[in-house]
């Protein structure tokens, strides 16, 4: 689903409706509220460690995803704290709009990542290299516990205002981190939703790109 009135409408109606007035209101309000920010950095990869950081890439899925890669890009994107505040306020006064706004904000965070991924892919292509699709904590068996170290390595608190709590939940809520591998030519198999152990029950739908 893309970040648009249609995308939000579809996500709210299990894909059945392409236009809901409340989706339009939510997107309009989000455009006024959001202060999107993205940070990204390129790192060398050595085995399952990202050089210079405390990050170890746990899990079979990410290893397979980054097979043949000698470098990685880390990105963190956020819609901004103002959107969190707006959700808090809307919850008290208009639950339906709060829900639509929340959905729109999730899509927007994802759209920020899409855009960044496209930019980086173009840069890598210019270098004659290939970029894997992005991979986030929580996909497959890549644990959420890596989240803090990704944010610390990106200095995301200082550069984008993204912090993380002991349970690995980010603030602002509508934030995403991701890892993308850089290789000469990708011979492995990129992870997709079909590989995910939550495939049957996942209701995020966001990974169903």
């Amino acid at each position: 689903m893309s970040y648009s009135v249609e995308g939000v409408s579809r996500l709210l109606t299990d894909g059945k409706e392409s236009y809901l007035p409340i989706a339009e209101r939510a997107v309009e309000l989000l455009e006024k509220t959001a202060r999107p920010r993205v940070v990204r950095n390129r790192f060398e990869l050595c085995g399952d460690k990202i050089v210079g950081t405390n990050i170890t890439l746990f899990g079979k899925d990410i290893k397979r995803h980054l097979q043949d890669c000698k470098e990685v890009w880390l990105i963190a994107a956020t819609v901004g704290n103002e959107a969190d505040d707006e959700i808090k306020r809307l919850f008290a006064v208009d639950l339906a709009l709060a829900h639509a706004f929340d959905t729109a904000a999730s899509l927007k965070a994802d759209a920020l990542c899409d855009e960044t991924e496209r930019e980086i892919r173009a840069e890598m292509n210019r270098e004659g290299k290939t970029l894997t699709p992005r991979f986030s904590c929580g996909y497959g068996d890549f644990p959420l516990s890596v989240q803090p170290d990704i944010l610390f390595a990106l200095d995301a608190a200082k550069r984008a205002g993204i912090t993380v709590n002991a349970d690995c939940t980010m603030r602002p809520f509508k934030s995403v981190t991701a890892v993308m591998g850089v290789c000469e030519r990708f011979g492995g198999k990129a992870f997709d939703c079909n590989d995910c152990r939550f495939k049957a029950v996942c209701s995020h739908k966001l990974c169903a790109r």
Binding site: P148, L151, I162, T163, V164, A166, R171
Partner: peptide
């Protein structure tokens, strides 16, 4: 410096 950790 700021910790990057959310204080509950």
């Amino acid at each position: 410096g700021s910790s990057g950790v959310t204080i509950g």
